[in-house]
Each structure stands twice: as structure tokens, then as C-alpha cells.
Nucleic acid binder design. Structure first.
Length: 265
DNA sequence: ATGACCAGCTTGGCTGGA
């Protein structure tokens, strides 16, 4: 089975790219982030015509996640327990969508950006990750969950875990995505029993995001912020991973590219 | 060329992205 995650940066602007990607790579399950549309605006028919089922979560033009599967799409969940909202009167955002596809529970995750270190969105980001981690741990803990569960936490984590995950760490002084607190929040998923399964298959300094501005892509000045955490039972099935760098080329690309994961049958 | 932001909505100048 082949699963992939991609921050598409508007599904309406790039449905053709997503369809071509599915056909070209033979991906069975695609988790999307930043679909940037309400559920009723999602171009689901195009994917259904290609033989996929579609689950979407979109409240407005911001955020938005989806799962597209041709190996079943069951038990759709539109939040995780305890998912924080943003604001004084917390508003839940469209950032987490779970579904079971071919026996694997896939969570399409769009972790909050954080904006600036002194912005309330930064504290929100850390809180969001803390609660997701607590739930993810419970899902594979005996008693509250199933130690044999096959769970994939995939998406745009908006964190560069290592200095080599950005083109120039000195350019990120005082910025989000590289702070110790964010990196600790990311590493906490490993402490909870999950393994980030893409890195061992992909060379260092292979990026998943390049800003549209300042020739960042031609200069390969990017960031690696899209990751795939797997539960123990799922991690044991991973046979390979790729970053689809060529998806950043051509007409009207997303600023992120897909991360593809291959699983043994 | 991989080339000097892009998306959506309020449709024209904002916000959000990272």
C-alpha cells in the first residue's frame, strides 16, 4: 500500500495536480492539508470519478484537511479528543481528520503555524501538539488503546526538527519552526512510541517546502517540515519513503511537495 | 530552466502562509 501526505495550498487551485499525482504514483491514500475550502466547495467528484472515496474537513478559506482513499474510508473523525481551539472563546479549526483506510488509521494533520514566537498562535501550536501527543499515546497504550494499532500521523507539522532541515539555521534566529520548545513537542511523539519513518529513507537536506518568494526553490533554500509518524505496528511495515521534489516545478505548484510512504502488504 | 509570491474573499487591498 502506498500512502502520501501533501500540503496542497488550495485544492481548488490544484485538483488537477493532485489527480495527476495519484495516477502517476499509484498512491492509495492521500492526506491533504491546506485545502482552503469549505466541505461543499471541495472538488470531490473529480476524485470519485478516478475511483477514490473522499473525506473532507473545511470550515472556511483557511486551513482545511482531507483524506482521499481507494482502499476504503471508514470511521471518519473530525477532531481528536481534547483538540484545542484558538482564541479566548476557543474556536476549533479544520486541522485534524482521521479515517481508517485499508486497515491503517490515517490522521491528516495541519499543525498550527505559530506565526511569531510572541504571538498567541505560538502558544496555541504548542498546546495543540501537547494534546495530540497525549491522544496518540493513548491510542497505542494497553487499556486505553491497542498496542497493535496501525496509525499514521501525517501532515504539515510546521516544525524543522533538525538544523539541517532548513537551508540556513542562522536565518531562523528568533523565528518559529526551529525553537527548542517546538522541537521538544515534535520529539515527544517518539517518546510516546511513534517513529518518524520517512527520514531514514531520505537523504539529509531534502526539503518539502520552499517559499514562493526570493527564488527559494531554484536556490534550494527550503525547509523540511512535512513528516510521517507511525505507530510501532505500522512502522514495521514501512519499506520506503520519497519526497516528490518535482511537484514543486511546472505551472502553479503548491509551495510544499508530497511525502510518499510505501508499506509492505 | 526549477527564475524573482500565492490563495481566497471583501474583487482590491486585506489576511495568512513560514
Amino acid at each position: 500500500m502506498r500512502i502520501a501526505t501533501w500540503n496542497i495550498n488550495s485544492i481548488r487551485a490544484r485538483a488537477d495536480r493532485a489527480l495527476a499525482f495519484l495516477e502517476r504514483t499509484g498512491t492509495d491514500v492521500l492526506a491533504l492539508q491546506e485545502t482552503k475550502c469549505k466541505d461543499e466547495q471541495f472538488p470531490r467528484e473529480a476524485f470519485e470519478a478516478a475511483g477514490y472515496e473522499v473525506a473532507t474537513l473545511g470550515f472556511s478559506q483557511w486551513n482545511g484537511v482531507a483524506i482521499i482513499s481507494r482502499v476504503g474510508l471508514e470511521d471518519v473523525q473530525t477532531t481528536f479528543a481534547g483538540q484545542p481551539g484558538f482564541g479566548v472563546e476557543p474556536v476549533t479549526e479544520a486541522r485534524a481528520l482521521g479515517a481508517t483506510c485499508g486497515g491503517v488509521t490515517i490522521w491528516s494533520l495541519y499543525i498550527p503555524n505559530g506565526r511569531e514566537i510572541d504571538d498567541p498562535h505560538y502558544a496555541y501550536k504548542l498546546e495543540w501538539l501537547k494534546h495530540l501527543r497525549a491522544q496518540a499515546e493513548s491510542w497505542i497504550t494497553p487499556g486505553t488503546g491497542d498496542p497493535d494499532a496501525q496509525i499514521a500521523l501525517v501532515g504539515d507539522w510546521n516544525i524543522a526538527p533538525l538544523d539541517e532541515d532548513v537551508w540556513d539555521i542562522e536565518a531562523f534566529a528568533g523565528r518559529t519552526h526551529v525553537t527548542p520548545a517546538e522541537r521538544e513537542a515534535f520529539a515527544a511523539f517518539a517518546d510516546a512510541g511513534y517513529t518518524e519513518v520517512s527520514r531514514e529513507h531520505i537523504p539529509d537536506r531534502t526539503f518539502t517546502y520552499w517559499d514562493y518568494q526570493q527564488l527559494r526553490f531554484p536556490r534550494n533554500e527550503g525547509m523540511r517540515i512535512d513528516f510521517t509518524y507511525a505507530s510501532p505496528a505500522l512502522a514495521a511495515r514501512v519499506t520506503g519513503a520519497t519526497i516528490e521534489r518535482n511537484e514543486r516545478k511546472g505551472k502553479a505548484p503548491s509551495d510544499h511537495v508530497p511525502v510518499v510512504l510505501d508499506l509492505a502488504d
